[in-house]
Amino acid sequence: MTRQSAGRAALRLLGWLPLYALLAASAAVVMFPLYMTVVDSLQPIAKFLTFPPDFWPHTPVWSNYRAAMTSIPMPRYMANSLIMATVITVGEVVTAALAAYAFSFMRFPFRTPLFFLFLSTMMVPWEISIIPNFQTIQRLNWLDTYQGLTVPFLATAFGTFLLRQHFMSLPRELKDAADIDGYGDLRFLLSVVVPLSRAALATLAVFAFLQAWNQYLWPLLVTNDPNMRTVQIGIASLQSEEVQRTNVVLAGTILALLPMLALVIAFQRFLVRGLTAGALKG
């Protein structure tokens, strides 16, 4: 009996083996470029060009990072990116929550058609509206300002869609009960809907932040003042600044990546839950 079940357990483990091997191989493929970026960012420039490449920084050159920080105003760029991404994230989450609330809990004429109209804007690539948006910002005299960097992104159909889908999964009776308890829409949103949607809100916040942080084209268009540039543009200018020292550019890339990495790790619990929400009601 025990021998049998032990044998079965071993067999089951054997069955899992190919799957885990495949997953490990995929992970290695995905992680390898990142790993090499970290390694090369710590190599002296001489080592960087050798072949075959060195897979381990035997004498880490931390000065590459200092160089990346000083050869362009990196702290300033990072601060700008941080401000921009934070404002966009907060704005997007707030507007999406309000709009999603209206589309899922309030009754008004043409609610569903309006929602689909709203959704259809998701089909329009951002690049198509980039020119009119630029003209608007220019006319408002918002070039080289934080408003110019952030306002076009404060409301998105994607965020509204994501949250609405989640809000729709909340029991309608909660709204009825709150109505009878005397809670208005805003209070119901804040004291019931938001606490019950933490995972979805966190997911949206992380996506919004990631997207904002990684923006390149728009900040490039609306900022000329080096004081207003963001970190992604910083990396690009670092590239032209440090043509000779690619490893310094890589160090800069790693620096730009760190806040993202920290954020994803901090929120990964929510992310997994947010993305699988609805698959399994819990």
Binding site: P171, E173, D176, A177, I180, G182, Y183, V192, P195, L196
Partner: peptide, 18 residues
């Protein structure tokens, strides 16, 4: 509803889960 001063008990209770 809030001005009618009635209380309601729902089929699935509608308790606030959090």
């Amino acid at each position: 509803p809030r001005q009618r001063d009635v209380a309601m008990v729902f089929q699935n209770y509608a308790l606030y889960p959090h």
